[in-house]
Design a protein around this nucleic acid. Structure first.
Lengths: 183, 183
DNA sequence: AGGTGCATGTAACAGGTTACATGATTAA
DNA sequence: TTAATCATGTAACCTGTTACATGCACCT
C-alpha cells in the first residue's frame, strides 16, 4: 500500500486491466494488437509491474484454474479504479510524445551523401509506413468493434501514417523533378 | 579499432558530426533544435559515445583552445565516413519507428471513464500537438536555410502534427454531435 | 558582481528488451 | 506426435535520463 508515484507503464497496465485484460498474457496481447503503434510493453515490464501494483493495493490477483491451466487473474481494486479515473480526468499537464524514427534520422543526414541517397531514404521511409498502415487497415477490417477509445486511436494511427505516405509521394515527385532535366 | 556493431545512437552522432556539429555541445544543440521531434539525445549518451567512436576509429577528437576556452573538436575519419555512407545507402531492412504517446494512451482508455473523459482527452491531445506544431513552424520561420535533409524532416514533422491536430478537430466535432441532442 | 551561454563530464537511477527457463492445453 | 497457443516468470543486459560538479568567457 505504498504511495510511490507510479509511472506511465503502471498506468498503462491499470488501463489494460480496466479494459478487460485480466492476465499478464492478455495485457501483452491487447497492447501488441491494439496499442503497439503508440505504446509498447514487454513481459519483462508487465509481470513485475503487476506485482508492484498489487503491493500498492491497486489491483488484486487471484490464482484461477480454468480447465487445469493455472492463470493469475487480476482486477482493479477501488483504489485502482480511482487512480485510473483521476489520471484520465486530471487537468492536462503537458503530455509526453516521444518519437524515435530511424528512417527520419537517415533522411535528416541523407543530403550529406548526395541527392541519390535522399531519394532512396524517402522511398524507404514510405515503404516502412505503408507497411505499418497496412497492419492498421487490416486491424480495422478485422473482427468486432472495440471500445470507443480503441476505435479512435486506431483511426488516428491510420490518419498519421496515411499522411506520412502521402508526404513521401509528394517529396519523391519533387526530388525527381529536380534531377530530371539533367539527362 | 573494435568492430562492435554500433547502435543507432552512435550512427546518429556520426551523422551530426558529418553535418558540422564538431563538439559534444554542438551535437546536442543540433539534435535539440532540428531533430528532437524524431530523435532525442542527452549529454549522458553523447560524451561517452564520442569516446567509444574514437576508440573504434570512426572519429578523431582534437583538443582546441579557441580564445582560452578549451573544447574537444571531433571530425570523421575515413572509416567513419565510410560507415556513415554505408548506413545511409544500405539496402533497406525495415526501419524502426517507435512512438510513445501518453495522450493516445489516455485516449485509448478514456471510454472506460465515460464520454466526457474521451472528449477531454481529444482536446488535450490537440493542445499537445498544437504546441509541438507551433515550435516546428517557428523553427521554419527562423534563421538560415538548413540542409535538404533537415528541411525535409522539418516539413514532414509539420505535416504529421498538422494532420493530428486536424484529426482531433474532426473527432471533437463528431463527439459533440453525438452528445448534443441531449440537453 | 552576476547572469547567461559555452563547454565537458560522471554517477545514480529509471526504463525497457532479450534471452532463457518452464510447463500445460489444444488442434492438426 | 508435434506444433501452436496459453501462461508465468527472471536475469542480464542495454539504453537513456536526471542531477550534479566544474569552470571559463562575455555582456551588462
Amino acid at each position: 500500500m505504498e504511495r510511490a508515484e507510479l509511472g506511465a507503464t503502471a498506468r498503462a497496465i491499470l488501463g489494460m486491466v480496466a479494459l478487460g485484460a485480466s492476465t499478464g498474457y492478455e495485457i501483452k496481447q491487447l497492447a501488441d494488437k491494439a496499442a503497439r503503434h503508440f505504446w509498447a510493453a514487454s513481459y519483462g515490464q508487465i509481470y513485475p509491474e503487476l506485482r508492484r501494483l498489487q503491493a500498492a493495493g491497486l489491483v488484486v490477483g487471484r490464482v484461477e484454474r480454468s480447465g487445469g491451466r493455472v492463470r493469475k487473474v487480476y482486477s482493479l481494486t477501488e483504489a485502482g479504479e480511482q487512480t485510473l479515473r483521476d489520471w484520465l480526468c486530471e487537468p492536462d499537464r503537458l503530455q509526453a510524445f516521444e518519437v524515435r524514427s530511424e528512417g527520419m534520422l537517415k533522411l535528416f543526414f541523407s543530403s550529406w551523401a548526395g541527392g541519390r541517397a535522399t531519394t532512396q531514404q524517402v522511398q524507404a521511409l514510405r515503404r516502412t509506413h505503408e507497411q505499418i498502415l497496412g497492419q492498421l487497415l487490416r486491424l480495422r477490417e478485422g473482427n468486432g468493434p472495440p471500445t470507443v477509445g480503441q476505435g479512435l486511436t486506431l483511426e488516428l494511427g491510420i490518419a498519421i501514417h496515411t499522411r506520412i505516405v502521402e508526404w513521401c509521394r509528394t517529396a519523391e515527385a519533387q526530388l525527381a523533378e529536380q534531377s530530371d532535366p539533367l539527362p
